[in-house]
Write a protein that binds this DNA or RNA. Structure first.
Length: 635
RNA sequence: CGGGGCGUGGCGCAGCCUGGUAGCGCAUCUGCUUUGGGAGCAGAGGGUCGGAGGUUCGAAUCCUCUCGCCCCGACCA
């Protein structure tokens, strides 16, 4: 391919609204262009990378007998109503109505009514396709003999993100491989799950990036399990903790936190109210230092506690509504108090999962101050007399991190501004409280799985997820099969996603330097960049063309920079920016000695060679680069 | 959705406060000279200053509204 004919416009300056490296470099390299917030065109170079990654995905899935199909991007509301997600999926689901529904709205307006058009939305752009695929399978699969079955598609998805950002990594429109499996029972679904888990490991290994499969939070769907696949990159949105001794790797949202004892507290004492006068306190550290009395000149932070007032929201029939059946089905709010050791951080996901809540929010600070009667910094789990907290104490569900189970003599906010209690014994002083793992695990915490290693922290970009769905959709949508006895059962399902465009961006996010992108060989738009420095010279151009042809004949993908009138520096800068793994420079200077130069983009190492040796040398370089990828991939 | 910022040729920006014929760099086109890490000179094309309304003799500039985009936060199978 001649670069002079390629649709590409490199930019010397970074577009102002590009906020992450991958977006900056891909925009500067003329690979992507923004069309609207979170919506991009993939220009020819980027599209080549995307298609290459898709092919890797297809090849690996084919090995597991997965079948590719394509479902519509536009889906009818009825399907989503059937699963119940039409109501539960938020505004990320882009909904709209077709001409029929619009005509209906117009008709009603004519009749003097004032219909809300939103009530007439009857289609959406699919952000995921559980309903659509379940509909297909229930219509076409009846017998256990047809199972298991694994169907997937590579498709443009749309999620109307509140705040699209990070270029291709959190866009609204993106390409995703979404796969769904159907099984006769749990054991079969588990086998399907692990088959996909292994396939994903193969896929990301072939991609040539550093990645980790991590245990993730499976959200509100109980009993299911899930792994996310993360490309490791400093700019990643997710925090990952990985044990340095065993295989345990998990999203920090989920990582089990070891139970750490509170500080050496001595013999149990009574709760001494308003014991410490601690005015003008800022954080926990200052607070601990400021706790002084006759015996203490400050407290160890491990003996302090912190307290959060929260509101948990439930949809449908949560535990909170069980006592009052009249409330079942109604959205419900539960008041929550959470107690942690002073130096620990709250993990809201754990709290949510513990309660089965659909939402969790910190109480507004003003509201909390009115509720407890104390300023921020002095609130605690033991209510002060005469406050609303005191009145409603029995309705506040009290949760205590398990590190404080058995702890005594803790300090806590006194619910009186500028004062702290001393001598808190959660078990004694917080009747009805529940002990559980509620805190965020941290780097260097002892691994809960092997008890030997310590957690190491990484940043990751989530590019894939395997998820055991269970029967959520098959039950709500009656996707059933008949077993050997002719008995009907709902199919057990799994779903498996890979963000194609996000993965390509993540690969860039992990592989670049000050000069530009460094593409991993398997998804580089082209493999070899032949840079002709003197296209005006018939001799030099002739050699460059010959080298291009030789390499292409040998099966390499070549972009030939034959552009005239550019200085060598400009061409080199462009080549570095585009970042193909190998650059082959053909110039008058080198040809005087009969030589061209092969340069490795990543190492910048240069070898001189005769033009006739190009194919051989490029092959050697390719083998070396692929070798390096294999050792770099995975752990 | 809350807080903040920005909308001026394809890209990056100045001009706005203090109203008076829209500018710079990059890119593009032409010519000449250059050619191993973003060349030089000369010339050329390209902008309803996000949109609407208002104030004014006159608005990129002042006022009001609106749309879009970006950042921080919240949210995220």
């Amino acid at each position: 391919m001649k670069q002079s004919k390629l649709l590409i416009q490199t930019l010397r300056e970074t577009p102002r609204d590009a906020d992450v490296v991958s977006q900056q470099l891909m925009m500067r390299a003329g690979m992507i262009q923004k069309v609207a917030a979170g919506i991009y065109s993939y220009l020819p170079l980027a599209f080549r990378s995307i298609r290459k990654f898709e092919e890797i995905v297809r090849e690996e899935l084919a090995k597991d007998g997965c079948q590719e199909l394509l479902m519509p991007a536009v889906l009818p509301a009825e399907l989503w109503q059937e699963s119940g997600r039409w109501k539960f999926y938020g505004d990320e689901l882009l909904r709209f109505c077709d001409r029929k529904a619009k005509a209906e709205v117009a008709e009603r307006r004519k009749r003097g009514e004032t219909p809300d058009e939103r009530d007439f939305y009857n289609f959406c752009l699919g952000p995921t396709h559980e309903e659509a695929v379940t509909d297909i399978v229930r219509k076409n699969v009846r017998s256990y003999k047809q199972l298991p079955m694994n169907l997937f598609q590579v498709q443009t998805k749309f999620r109307d993100e509140r705040r699209p950002r990070f270029g291709l990594m959190r866009g609204r429109e993106f390409t995703m491989k979404d796969g769904y499996s159907f099984h006769v029972d749990d054991a079969c679904a588990d086998r399907g799950y692990w088959a996909m888990f292994n396939a994903y490991n193969r896929i990301f290994s072939r991609l040539g990036v550093k990645f980790r499969p991590v245990e993730a939070d499976s959200g509100a769907i109980g009993g299911s399990f899930t792994h996310e696949f993360h490309v490791l990159a400093g700019s990643g949105e997710d925090a990952i903790l990985s044990c340095d001794a065993c295989e345990y790797t998990s999203n920090m949202e989920k990582t089990e936190a070891p139970q750490l004892p509170a500080g050496p507290c001595g013999d149990r004492i009574d709760l001494k109210k308003d014991h410490f006068c601690t005015p003008g306190v800022l954080g926990q550290v200052e607070q601990a230092a400021g706790m002084k009395d006759a015996e203490h000149d400050g407290m160890p932070i491990t003996q302090t506690s912190k307290f959060y007032l929260m509101q948990a929201e439930f949809q449908g029939s949560p535990e909170a509504s069980k006592s009052n059946p009249a409330d079942a089905g109604q959205d419900k709010v539960l008041l929550l108090g959470v107690v942690l050791r002073g130096d620990h951080e709250l993990n809201p996901v754990k709290v949510k999962n513990l309660l089965g809540a659909t939402g969790l929010e910190l109480m507004e600070i003003v509201e909390a101050e009115a509720f407890t009667g104390a300023k921020s910094g002095f609130m605690g789990p033991v209510p002060a007399e005469g406050t609303r907290f005191s009145e409603l104490r029995s309705q506040v569900r009290m949760l205590v991190d398990r590190s404080l189970e058995g702890a005594v003599n803790l300090t806590c906010g006194a619910n009186r501004t500028d004062y702290h209690h001393f001598g808190l014994d959660p078990k004694r002083d917080l009747p009805g409280c529940t002990f559980a793992d509620l805190r965020m695990a941290a780097e260097e915490d002892l691994c809960t799985r092997c008890g030997k290693g310590r957690y190491q922290a990484f940043r990751g970009i989530e590019v894939g997820q395997v998820f055991k769905l269970g029967t959520k959709y098959s039950k709500s949508m009656s996707c059933t099969f008949l077993d050997e006895l002719g008995k009907e059962h709902p199919m057990v399902m799994g779903c498996y996603g890979i963000g194609i465009t996000r993965t390509v961006a993540a690969a860039v996010e992990q592989n670049y330097d000050a000069d530009g992108i460094i593409w991993p060989w398997p998804i580089s738009p082209y493999q070899v960049h032949v840079v002709c420095l003197d296209p005006g010279s018939a001799e030099v151009a002739g050699v460059a063309n010959q080298v291009e042809k030789d390499l292409e004949d040998a099966g390499f993908e070549v972009l030939h920079d034959d552009r005239e009138g550019l200085s060598p520096g400009a061409k080199f800068k462009d080549a570095d920016l585009l970042g193909f793994p190998l650059r082959l420079t053909v110039g008058a200077k080198g040809l005087k000695e009969g030589m061209v130069e092969l340069r490795d983009r990543r190492t910048k190492a240069v070898v001189k060679l005769r033009p006739e040796a190009a194919v051989a040398e490029v092959s050697v370089a390719r083998d070396r680069i692929m070798q390096e990828l294999e050792t770099a991939g995975g752990r």
